[in-house]
């Protein structure tokens, strides 16, 4: 990007070096690592979206297809994988709720709702949604 401060000016700027970022940049600070972990939740969350789709498909095909799919889900490796998915999905939820106040400004009359209250509302809604889905499934 050019500025009007004489981009060709060289007399006291014979050269410059531009340090580049290392491939391992995200290992240098705990906050960078947590950021990358947060972004990687997407892989697990997407994997679960596909598993959920396969579950619905197996249900619609019924009988044998469902039994085969349930047997797949019962493999120890698959249970372990779901454990990982659950951990990453919960991390995704918690980071999503804690970052929501950065974009969302809620005003009640003249007062801006503090971030902590906004996070609490999100967590409460999360518990409510989960309880509702659990009630629908378990009471079926």
């Amino acid at each position: 990007m050019d500025t009007e401060t004489a981009p060709t000016y060289k007399r006291f700027r014979p050269s410059a070096y531009h340090p580049s970022m290392a491939l391992t940049w995200w290992m240098k600070k705990p906050s960078y690592l947590l950021y990358i972990l947060r972004e990687l939740t997407a892989v697990f969350v997407a994997a679960y979206a596909i598993i959920l789709l396969l579950t619905v498909r197996a249900l619609s095909q019924g009988g044998e297809a469902w039994d085969t799919w349930l047997a797949t889900l019962q493999r120890p490796g698959m249970i372990l994988f779901h454990g990982f998915i659950l951990a990453f999905a919960v991390y995704h939820s918690l980071t999503w709720f804690t970052l929501a106040p950065t974009a969302l400004v809620v005003r009640i009359k003249d007062k801006v709702l503090p971030a902590s209250a906004l996070i609490a509302v999100h967590v409460a809604a999360w518990v409510g949604c989960s309880a509702f889905i659990a009630w629908v499934l378990l009471s079926a």
Partner: peptide, 9 residues
Amino acid sequence: SSFFIPIHV
């Protein structure tokens, strides 16, 4: 996904 995925998993 943040509200609904964990309970399904």
